[in-house]
Amino acid sequence: MMACGSRSNEIVDEFEKLVIKMNPPRVTVDNTSDMTATLVKVDSANKYGTLLEVVQVLTDLKLTINRAYISSDGEWFMDVFHVVDEEGNKLYDGQVIDRIEQSLGAGSLSFRGTDRCVGVEAEAEAAQTVIELIGRDRPGLLSEVFAVLTNLKCNIAASEVWTHDGRMAALMYVTDAETGGGIEEPERLDTVKRLLRHVLRGSSRDKKAARAAISARAAAPHAQRRLHQMMHADRGVHRADDGDAAADDRSLPVVVVEDCAERGYTLVNVRCRDRPKLLFDTVCTLTDMQYLVFHGTVIAEGSEAYQEYYIRHLDDGAAASDQDREQLRRCLEAAIQRRNTEVHIIIIII
């Protein structure tokens, strides 16, 4: 049965590739239509995850998306993104424009998974072992984790940590202290996982309260994409109460999820303080929850950001129940908030 299922998936995948080859993505970088931003226009065959691919590429290139207009009814994906560089200027760097066209153009878009990095970062991580950690957040936790890895002769090349609702998710990129390459010995990897789980659990006896996983893969996953997935999965197991005080906090995002039955969609409205990578975080959450964005408008040109999406679930169309819509609302709120508690990449030289 597994062999048949695998063969079926391969046929579907090859059919999708054939459709994309027949209708290759068209990418236009327009510096003349808008006085303040560069317009990136993407037209391609539509598939699940395409929007996230585009947003991820633009985010990885450290571009700010001031406006976006999304339309993907039927089998075609047509989006326009108003972007500026880190200084708030239009894109005049030919290398950046080339990277956009190469990353989103024919032969690239929809063949690259959204769990991969763009550019040389993935190549640099190829020789590293990736450690994923989930556990209860507490003071001094990272110091204990670093101490364990150092005692086990693991060099910590980089790490990225998010905390939210009393939980912590981390990605550690480590190498062997002697060889400088990835760690491959099964017994050593088992020891690393066992000791890290012990540190993460602390005084808790709940074995599900902490998780440590190791991957000595050829290329590391896209860090922030993976952190979203980890915290989303953990939220279903360890959910903190919102509390009455939080409800009165005006800095919290306002997320409204409504049934739009007459059009067959679920309508999502997000209004919150603008910040870098906000669009990536919301689109990532919608993708992880298996929602497709058919129409959308994003405006983020001041201190406040506004996002509107007309979505359907991959399986059931619109979010069918009040429970589905409430779960989506909570997950979007969490995705927006936890970026504010991230610990940036740390480089340790030993």
Rank of each mutant, 00 (worst) to 15 (best):
A124H: 15
A124K: 14
A124Q: 15
A124V: 12
E125K: 14
E125Q: 13
E125V: 09
E125Y: 14
A126G: 07
A126K: 12
A126I: 02
A126P: 03
A126R: 09
A126W: 03
A127R: 14
A127N: 12
A127C: 11
A127I: 13
Q128Y: 10
Q128D: 11
T129G: 08
T129W: 06
T129F: 08
V130E: 01
V130D: 02
I131M: 03
I131C: 05
I131S: 02
I131F: 04
I131G: 05
E132H: 08
E132T: 05
E132N: 05
L133C: 08
L133H: 05
L133R: 03
L133G: 02
L133W: 01
I134G: 05
I134R: 10
I134F: 10
I134T: 13
I134V: 10
I134P: 05
I134C: 09
I134M: 09
G135C: 07
G135I: 06
R136C: 13
R136D: 14
R136V: 13
R136Q: 12
D137N: 14
R138E: 06
R138S: 03
R138D: 06
R138V: 04
R138G: 08
R138K: 08
P139C: 06
P139G: 07
P139H: 06
P139W: 03
P139F: 06
P139T: 02
P139A: 06
P139K: 06
G140T: 02
G140I: 03
G140P: 05
G140K: 04
G140M: 04
G140N: 02
L141G: 05
L141K: 01
L141E: 05
L141M: 03
L142W: 08
L142C: 08
L142D: 08
L142F: 09
S143M: 15
S143V: 15
S143K: 15
S143N: 15
S143C: 13
S143E: 15
S143D: 15
E144Y: 05
V145C: 03
V145T: 01
V145Y: 00
V145F: 01
F146L: 13
F146A: 14
F146N: 14
F146V: 08
A147Y: 12
A147L: 10
A147R: 14
A147H: 11
A147K: 13
A147N: 11
A147Q: 12
V148Q: 03
V148N: 02
V148L: 00
V148A: 02
V148Y: 00
L149Y: 00
L149S: 01
L149E: 00
T150L: 06
T150D: 14
N151C: 09
N151D: 11
N151G: 05
L152N: 01
L152S: 02
L152W: 00
L152I: 03
L152G: 00
L152P: 01
L152H: 03
K153H: 11
K153T: 04
K153L: 11
K153A: 09
K153P: 04
C154I: 02
C154S: 09
C154K: 00
C154P: 05
N155P: 06
N155Q: 09
I156K: 02
I156Q: 07
I156D: 01
A157Y: 10
A157F: 09
A157T: 09
A157L: 09
A157I: 11
A158F: 14
A158Y: 11
A158R: 14
A158L: 10
A158I: 04
A158W: 10
